[in-house]
Design a binder for these strands. Structure first.
Length: 224
DNA sequence: GACCAGGCACATC
DNA sequence: GATGTGCATGGT
């Protein structure tokens, strides 16, 4: 498995080059994006982030002060805007109350504390927490998402129902505990997923196709 | 017009 | 503990 995970990474890097993932002008913006992208295409998140920027709402205090209706309007293009307004507000309240609104102070927490604290915030589950920890706080957790599970299960390495923590443990067991590597590996998976491994796969030109055994079936998501 | 997108909380069994 | 459902916009 260790060899497999390294091979996958090399193939993706050869194909895409370095990803410089995650986009965002500040750690706070990264955290906001992590919440907004829940089950949502990134291009829709970008519209909502642009609204927040133009309305001067990219700070925890501004979000807490702006009023529910105005926040919901700004988030509208990213979908689930009522839920996301609540979740974003919860995160901002947590940040202001616990850390004076400072992402830098949040990032100073030891990894285990940081993760437990984030998971205690309404609307922050394991993937969102790990996005924030890795990309905004720069601490080493491997981020698992739909594409991670889909790629490994389609290639026959894990069952499609494998749990989040089991999949995270698998990567963390076999890769060096390195923030830059974790960041780029997840970025490569997102690129690969977005381009080739969506609900209906496009394996012909996928950089990971060479790892498939000849004749190995790739199931689409309706055939589990 | 159906299907899909980088989840999560909550209800129910 | 496992499984099902609501949340909503915008692109293909």
């Amino acid at each position: 498995m260790k060899r497999t995970l390294h091979r996958y990474y090399d193939l993706m890097v050869d194909h895409f080059g370095p990803t410089n993932w995650w986009p965002g002008d500040s750690d706070f913006e990264i955290a906001v994006g992590a919440i907004l992208t829940q089950n949502t295409a990134w291009r829709n998140v970008e519209k909502a982030l642009a609204n927040l920027t133009s309305e001067n709402l990219l700070s925890p205090r501004a979000i807490l002060d702006c009023g529910e209706a105005r926040l919901e309007m700004a988030l509208k293009p990213s979908g689930f805007f009522r839920v996301k307004a609540r979740r974003l507000t919860s995160f901002c309240a947590f940040l202001v109350e616990g850390y004076g609104g400072s992402m830098g102070r949040l990032a100073e927490q030891p990894l285990d504390t940081l993760r437990a604290e984030l998971l205690g915030v309404h609307g922050i589950g394991p993937e969102t927490a790990d996005d924030i920890i890795l990309y905004a706080c720069e601490q080493p957790v491997f981020v698992v998402d739909t594409y991670t599970r889909r790629i490994l299960s389609r290639h026959g390495h894990v069952r499609p129902e494998i749990g989040y923590e089991d999949l995270r443990a698998l990567f963390e067991k076999h890769l060096d505990k390195n923030v830059a590597l974790y960041k780029d590996y997840h970025g490569q998976i997102v690129r690969t997923g977005n381009t080739y491994c969506r609900a209906t796969p496009k394996c012909e030109s996928c950089p990971l196709a060479p790892t498939l055994r000849r004749g190995q079936p790739i199931l689409d998501d309706t055939q589990k």
